[in-house]
Amino acid sequence: MEPETLEARINKATNPLNKDLDWDGINAFCEQLNKELEGPPLATRLLAHKIQSPQEWEAIQALTVLESCMKSCGKRFHDEVGKFRFLNELIKVVSPKYLGSRTPEKVKSKILELMYSWTLGLPHEVKISEAYQMLKKQGIVKC
């Protein structure tokens, strides 16, 4: 198999020209990030960048990659997602003070859904809960 970088893999998995979700590409990205020593921190940086894309389909695909990696990758990846460094990038997308006013509703609600599911599924990642509670307090999470 030819060597592929994480960057090449995320570009493939989130390509706006994809007609459907590219599950092979998504799984390849998850597998690759587990193999690399610096995979998780690099993967979260790449994902944050894609999630902030002004193209809705690119952002939604990136969020699907994130969701899938949270299910199939281990603690090293969870720990990176559970840092404010990454959570802040998600917060920027939903906050009207940053990118929130020009982010599609679908992207914002997917981010809030994912964060909520992690507060339940990964209760030991306390920073995720802290970030989610803050969004609730600020009225960005409704209900």
């Binding site: 460094r85 959570l87 802040n88 802290e130």
Partner: peptide
């Protein structure tokens, strides 16, 4: 230097 166990983080953003 490269740290393989990088525990550094930033503060939670205020929105």
């Amino acid at each position: 230097t490269v740290s393989f166990h990088d525990d550094s983080d930033e503060d939670l953003l205020n929105v």
